[in-house]
Design a protein around this nucleic acid. Structure first.
Length: 289
DNA sequence: CCAATTGTTATTTA
DNA sequence: ATAAATAACAATTG
């Protein structure tokens, strides 16, 4: 499920545990979510450590710890979580009994921080050291950062020129945090057909696409993850009916803007929904880049 | 039994 | 050699 804004929603949930010590680490040894992770080390170092703070980048979360089993030279521990397709983070009371797919739990005095992931496409990573690890700093600059320029997008679309634009929007190395529904939402707002080849977009279309990438990211973060201290009761609580989001899976769903029927088909390996009345396959007049 | 799922990566094909 | 398409991963649901 989780894309950019949902990931921020879940991180914000766990922020209830900021400042508190981890009394116990509970995990399902050998599960796929721990691939490449030294779980013995993780358990040793996080037990007794304090969760200082956290942040998100793209579809990843980083939780920072100090104290506990960490030596002075080691300084900090860094816990990375990727939610994959079906992962979620919850906060449960201290007397909570773990459920089947609760693969990783940080037990604090007042609460349990739970990572649940039935399909296990998600991932837990762990590193030690004074600075954030490579797997974190290597994440591409955020779409909402000044580094995400139209020039960057133009260059990328040119290199991926033979791929449908829908597939290109899913590439995390340039569009960090965008997933299937956000890509559809962006293309729908930009009025660009998902099957258009990336290299065929005109300069005007690229500018529109760039703007809608930022717009959808900003709106989704505000709407799904809330503002300031506020956290919505659930992921979709405040998503307006005017977004494609609500209609893309409905059978007989209609475009919120044109009121004409929506269409679904696999594009770039993923089920894609668009509004044929709004998103045309033939490029408009103008120079392709 | 078949097909589907808001993700990523390894492998195969062009 | 590069980039695009496909398969695979795992669990559950309709």
């Amino acid at each position: 499920m989780p894309e950019l804004a949902e990931v921020e929603f879940f991180r914000k949930r766990w922020s209830a545990g900021h400042g508190a010590t981890v009394r116990r680490v509970q995990l399902h040894e050998g599960k796929k979510v721990f691939r490449g992770c030294d779980t013995a080390l993780l358990t040793a170092k996080l037990t007794g450590a304090r969760l200082i703070d956290s942040e998100t980048a793209a579809k990843q979360m980083l939780f920072r710890f100090s104290g506990g089993g960490l030596s002075r030279a080691e300084s900090r521990a860094w816990l990375g979580i990727h939610l994959g397709m079906s992962g979620e983070l919850r906060v449960e009371p201290s007397d909570y009994t773990p459920a089947k797919h609760d693969h990783f739990i940080l037990v604090q005095k007042e609460r349990q921080l739970v990572f649940n992931d039935p399909r296990m496409f998600g991932r837990v990573q762990f590193s030690i050291g004074p600075q954030p690890p490579d797997w974190w700093t290597r994440i591409a600059p955020a779409i909402l950062s000044p580094a995400f320029t139209t020039a960057l997008v133009t260059g990328f679309l040119k290199r991926r020129g033979r791929a449908p634009i829908k597939a290109v929007l899913l590439m995390q190395e340039r569009f960090p945090g965008i997933g299937n529904w956000m890509a559809d939402e962006i293309l729908w707002r930009a009025a660009i057909h998902p099957k258009r080849l990336a290299g065929s977009l005109t300069l005007v279309e690229i500018r529109t696409l760039h703007r809608e990438c930022r717009h959808v990211c900003r709106l989704a973060l505000e709407t799904i993850a809330g503002q300031g201290k506020y956290l919505p009761p659930n992921l979709n609580a405040h998503i307006p009916k005017s977004w494609l989001f609500w209609h893309r899976w409905e059978n007989g769903g209609r475009c919120p803007r044109t009121k004409k029927p929506l269409f679904r088909e696999e594009v770039g390996g993923r089920t894609t929904c668009w509004s044929p009345a709004r998103q045309k396959l033939n490029p408009p007049k103008g120079r392709a880049t």
